[in-house]
Amino acid sequence: MSKVKTKKHSTFIDMTAMSDVTVLLLTFFMLTANFIKKEPTQIVTPGSVSEQKIPDSNIMTLLIDKTGRVYMTLDRRDNKLAVLEEIGKDYNITFTPEQKKSFLDQPTIGVPVSILPKFLDMRLEQQDEVLREYSIPTDSTNNQLRQWIQHTIAINSDINIGIKADETTPYPFVKNVLDILMDLKQYRYHLITTLEA
């Protein structure tokens, strides 16, 4: 019996092409990336046919989750700082530089002012946990949301207002926020939705 000679093939695969493709993909993702912002609650926005884009910058977003909790985000840091100082004046609270820095690092505004200094002393990871338990009070007797919005508008009158509510949010919660905006003479705002297929 003669031995069947198998030719020894090199298992070396040229990865150059593969590498080219992945680098291209990577570049694409890096260029189109806009990072998902951290939000204290999960909000599923309703679908709509509207094809307008929300403004990129200079926007104040009001988040309303399905249990009616309200949070607020501000994208401009200088505004944020000024608003914090105004709120501090209202409640006679002076914030330390560390607290101010912590406020700027935390993207969401969402605790009652009474516990805000204590909240800002915590570490960022702890803050996220605490945020889930609190929200901005919006009752008529203690309407802190109104104060936050009022100060923001006073500082930056051109700010765009976005409302991001969960699709299952009962209407009265949304109406409450809309009424506050109406009260502050803000009649134009954006309802944030996702594009329906």
Partner: peptide, 29 residues
């Protein structure tokens, strides 16, 4: 090199949102 790139791509795919949310502009009376 490909391994590393793939990892990076996966990271970017999970952490970014491609589609920007849409908005409806409404003006109240």
């Amino acid at each position: 090199m490909v391994d590393m790139n793939m990892l990076l791509i996966t990271f970017f795919m999970f952490c970014t949102s491609l589609a920007k949310p849409q908005a409806m502009e409404i003006g109240m009376p």
